[in-house]
Write a protein that binds this DNA or RNA. Structure first.
Lengths: 178, 178
DNA sequence: TTGAACCTATATCGGATTGATATATAAGAT
DNA sequence: ATCTTATATATCAATCCGATATAGGTTCAA
């Protein structure tokens, strides 16, 4: 799945500027399973415009720079439906944290605690974001599905790490008492 | 975390060829949280050799092509310890599946079922891989930590999807009965 | 027996993507 | 006054993926 399809997907839910799309993938419900940078979003929107899958209109704003608002066309909706009606590729998950834990013999217990706490903070931040999005009563079934899946997975990660953290703290105090 | 650090990490556990590193990343305990292609592994190994962080030796094999076995040096171990003693970057998770579910209004129920089943198969495949690795009694505490975390998260995903799948099947039979 | 399919092994390259940076405007804080 | 933060678009070097090329060896059924 490339950034072009990602943009079509977001624009199928609401028209938006490049900046807003970036914000959606950074802070919205999308944030915990999608990523894209300005360097890929802006070229993608330009290409989609040329291909006729989206239209642009410049919108003046008071107190803010003008923005280009992109809207999906019928051709774009067809292209989107076609692009997502495939067997999904396997999830990609990259974790610097787990890589560190795998090599924890090279780390001090203090550094390990810092890493675990960072991971817990990250997971709880995502959970808070999902909880916030779930407030919205008129949320569609799609976002609800994604939110529930995310909640289940993140909660399991938090539980596991809270346990690991307590174990580590016990070990550290035991060692300090010697 | 770049591919150079990844290679150093793997070589700190065992000496290996570029091909073996790729296999580890694809099928080993690493597989569900790390990814790297030949196109990044081979250049990384060459660079690490020049930098003096690894050494190479050619090894002849009967019945197989010769291989270049890479070993980590003391300088390499120091560089590794330094590289992983940092606050870890946030996990990156990309899911084509969740993107599809978010836009499920553009999909048929049949296609949705296919996607959910694919995701279940992927999760169960990872769980099986972890179970297989956990057989090893002399597994260090690092791999055990990672295996337990992976097990917790993946199991939660499977439970959630099994429920979603049963709900969808009910809806489909109900609709067919009309 | 032969050739199709598959495994080990290294290497390269086009194209996609990231992360950082540049530019511009304006609100709000100190 | 000046600093930080937010909106908004754009570009680019460095990195990385996915596919492909090459080459020798094994297995096994037609």
């Amino acid at each position: 799945m490339n950034v072009r399809t990602l943009c079509l997907g977001i624009l199928s839910l609401q028209e938006a500027s490049g900046y807003q799309i970036k914000k959606d993938v950074e802070e919205g419900l999308f944030s915990h399973f999608i990523d894209a940078s300005y360097g890929s979003i802006y070229p993608a929107l330009n290409q989609l415009t040329v291909e006729g899958y989206v239209t642009v209109r410049a919108e003046e704003q008071t107190g803010k720079p003008d923005k280009k608002v992109y809207s999906i066309t019928e051709a774009g909706k067809n292209a989107l439906a076609k692009a997502i009606s495939v067997v999904p590729a396997k999830d990609k998950y990259k974790s610097e944290f787990l890589f560190q834990m795998l090599l924890k013999d090279y780390m001090t217990p203090e550094m390990m605690l810092v890493a675990i706490q960072k991971q817990l903070d990250d997971l709880n931040e995502d959970l808070a974001r999902i909880a916030e999005c779930s407030q919205d009563e008129n949320m569609g079934t799609g976002p609800r599905f994604v939110g529930e899946y995310g909640h289940a997975v993140l909660t399991a990660g938090v539980s596991c790490l809270e346990y690991k953290k307590s174990q580590l703290l016990q070990q550290m105090t035991a060692r300090a008492a010697e």
